[in-house]
Design a protein around this nucleic acid. Sequence first.
DNA 1: CGTAACCGCAACAGCAATGATGCAGTAAAT
DNA 2: ATTTACTGCATCATTGCTGTTGCGGTTACG
Lengths: 181, 181
Amino acid sequence: MRADAARNLTAVLHAGARLLAEDPGASMAAIAAAAGVDRTTVHRRFANREALLSAVFQAKLDSAERVLDEARLLESPLPVALHRYLEGIIPVSREWPVDMRLMMRKDPAAWTRREEQSARLDAFIRRALGEGYLRAGVDAAWARTILDELVDTAAHRFPDLEPPQAADLVAATLLNGLGAT
Amino acid sequence: MRADAARNLTAVLHAGARLLAEDPGASMAAIAAAAGVDRTTVHRRFANREALLSAVFQAKLDSAERVLDEARLLESPLPVALHRYLEGIIPVSREWPVDMRLMMRKDPAAWTRREEQSARLDAFIRRALGEGYLRAGVDAAWARTILDELVDTAAHRFPDLEPPQAADLVAATLLNGLGAT
DNA sequence: CGTAACCGCAACAGCAATGATGCAGTAAAT
DNA sequence: ATTTACTGCATCATTGCTGTTGCGGTTACG
């Protein structure tokens, strides 16, 4: 692929992730304009709208998968793994702000791939329960969901937080909450 | 208004909230079908799509406002106020699952009204900080956002939780987190 | 520098959603 | 029981988005 084509491709993917995050019904024309590219250029590379969305999802899933690999969730000491995951996933979530859960309904490939990544985090939560980092009796599904929500909140609602500080905040909130001791 | 018209109206509003929660681009035809009425009936009552969305927002805001009034956030003892708010707002969030933050961008009236309600919760968070129920040093904006996220999560991702149990879970998670002591 | 890939522009067809209207039938209210 | 309000149905015009194609011009690359 030629260099300018590659630049345009990533510009379109990033613009797509950004606009679709604000408005899931954003038009191809709007995405093309935001990427500084003609509408037909997008149509030439992506046969249809669905294919563009899939490409955005794949880009996000690629980045997330790399973070999961490097976090070594089941091998590293648990607090280390947690912080490494958080510090890695927050920039990914900011780079690809498009919401997964709502938009991947009609993309089975992306859906199953997300399920696989989700299973790895489920295993991490089970490990945390087994090793006593989470209180006994805490529901694993609840803990898992709260972890995701805290990450999304820190990533998008507090965009000025640097990843290390954001990771600290998420971990502290998850483990200790916000109440007085 | 005639009785059957009122029934159809609430059916349309509820169907709208439900479908728009799953797909913000749900068509008027789909909403009408889900409500069991003809498409033209919806168009007769709501001049345009925007008016229908506004009506859904107003319905949700009405319910939420009643909950805020009855919780007496600044008068009742703080733990009581928190639980009363949570027990009240979770069913409201389930009855009107449509997401506010994303969809009210183009509805200034609903937006400002939501801001007013949001300010009441901000004041509640400040009170909790001032009375020492939240750790000193906790960022008010962070606490406020986490409260909202926990409510949404309990309401929609754990639909089988009864409101009292859901309220307990949210309050406990907010104050104590999920980590071992 | 020459070629091949890529792009912008213009134009077109197709489609789905929106919004309006007239009319006949049905259900609520007095 | 009668009137009035409301609904469903069929129909139509309009609009915005999608997807395609052809052509001339530009840009990367060997």
